[in-house]
Amino acid sequence: MRAKTSGRPVPDAVVHSLTDHRGEGAPRLGLVADLGCGRGTSSRVLAERLRPMRLIGIDLAPALLADARDRVVGLRDVRAEFVQADFHQLPLGCGSAGAAVAVFCLYHSPQPERALAEIARVLADDGLAVLVTKSLDSYRELDALVAAAGLDPRAEKHESLYTTAHSGNLAELADTSLEVITTEHEEHRFTFDSLAHAAEYLATNPKYHLPPDLYGNPRALAAALHTALPDQPTTTSSVITYVVARHRGGRR
């Protein structure tokens, strides 16, 4: 995120989408579900800005959930909890959620339609879902950088990380279970001011087939990049797509 030069903070955009589509004077939300909540960055913003009665963050990784719990310490008037669970089988009752948010998580599923069906199941009749993903060609300039350095000559040929749920198909996927209200695309741009800065991101990107001693080791990766390439800034981009949808048959 230190490299970001344009594009709204995604959690803020999600809150704006929910408040805009719920309208002025909407009652306080009961339950907000944050699927694939990770370290709770979005969860904290959702809790602070929406002030629901209850927020549940759901993720499969215990370490990330521990970070998320720490992130919401001190929140008042919002019952925030974090549950280890699979978003294909949400531990929530039918029609229990006033809002469900899935930020940068659906593309981790080989069958995102299953996760979307679960979102539809747990949404209240007047509930809203905000789904967020990235374009297939996100960060292609970084692919070219890794290939040019000879660290993974096929970096530009590997399948996108976002293949199953991307900017081009997210609305269509959502429409299998939900009623899509709006789809918005926004370009986000990033400038890594040095090879060392880029290495901080590249070292943990699962897309690249890096030598074992470089994966997870930004310092070693930066040294390898310096050996092969001149040290200069790298600018890249990604299209972020927001789909707002509602329960089919929900009140208008």
Rank of each mutant, 00 (worst) to 15 (best):
R140D: 10
A47S: 08
G74T: 04
G168S: 08
I240E: 12
R8I: 13
L92G: 06
A115C: 14
A13M: 02
G40P: 00
H21N: 09
H88V: 14
T234L: 07
R114L: 12
S138M: 07
P9A: 01
V72M: 10
Y162M: 01
A61F: 12
V101L: 07
A80M: 09
P27Y: 04
Q111M: 14
A97Q: 11
A26H: 03
V243Q: 02
T235M: 05
T133W: 02
L50V: 04
A97M: 04
H226P: 03
P206T: 04
Q84P: 09
H188N: 04
L202G: 01
R28T: 10
L145N: 03
A129W: 00
R44S: 07
V73F: 09
A203R: 00
G249A: 05
D126H: 09
H88R: 15
P91M: 11
R76A: 14
P62Q: 06
V101S: 03
E184S: 11
H166L: 02
A117R: 13
R8E: 15
A3Q: 04
H247A: 14
L151N: 11
R251D: 12
G127C: 01
K157P: 04
G23I: 11
C105E: 11
Y162K: 03
A245T: 07
P211A: 06
L92F: 12
